[in-house]
């Protein structure tokens, strides 16, 4: 029986929308948190490998990853000791396609300002695989030193 002439006010059931939106934003932030670390994520992933002594035959990979991240973060600065370590690792490397790693090392040396060692690393890369050396020096990463090192134009 209707006791009042007034219509009942509609009442929203369930969770208020703002709670849902806050939840969605929070979940999104949690999901995106590692991605937001950016290049720091490269360091974290490489450090996990170093800590776990991952694949000793390929330990050069995380070491290069760490050096790459440091170089980017510190404007190219890498201690000579660290670079010497990388050279030693790469000299001892027996795995596949060292050309890529010589190119990476050359890039690290060039960023560190040691043109001589960068040239030496480039020569090692060319000697290992001239085809891939030519192909991979087209990257924009080499643009600042392209002329100085006589690299082929893009």
């Amino acid at each position: 029986m209707q006791l009042s002439s007034f219509q009942p006010l509609p009442r929203r059931q369930g969770i208020p929308p703002w709670v849902i939106w806050v939840g969605v934003v929070l979940l999104g932030l949690i999901l995106l948190w590692p991605t937001m670390q950016g290049r720091e994520l490269r360091r974290m992933a490489a450090q996990h490998r170093v800590d776990a002594n991952w694949r000793p035959d390929y330990r050069l990979l995380p070491l290069l990853g760490l050096a790459h991240q440091q170089s980017v973060a510190q404007g190219g600065k890498l201690s000579p000791g660290q670079r010497d370590g990388l050279w030693a690792e790469l000299e001892a490397y027996k795995g596949s396609y060292p050309v890529f790693f010589w190119l990476e090392l050359a890039w690290l040396e060039a960023r560190a300002g040691d043109d001589g060692r960068a040239r030496r690393a480039l020569k090692r890369a060319e000697a290992d695989n001239p085809r891939l050396y030519l192909a991979m020096t087209k990257t924009r990463l080499w643009d600042p030193w392209r002329e100085r090192f006589g690299l082929p134009p893009r």
Partner: peptide
């Protein structure tokens, strides 16, 4: 995820497919 770009050159040099 790491570089926030689509350029794969660095990832190839560092063999991050590993």
């Amino acid at each position: 995820a790491v570089d926030h770009d689509l350029d794969l050159a660095e990832n190839i040099f560092l063999r991050e497919s590993s």
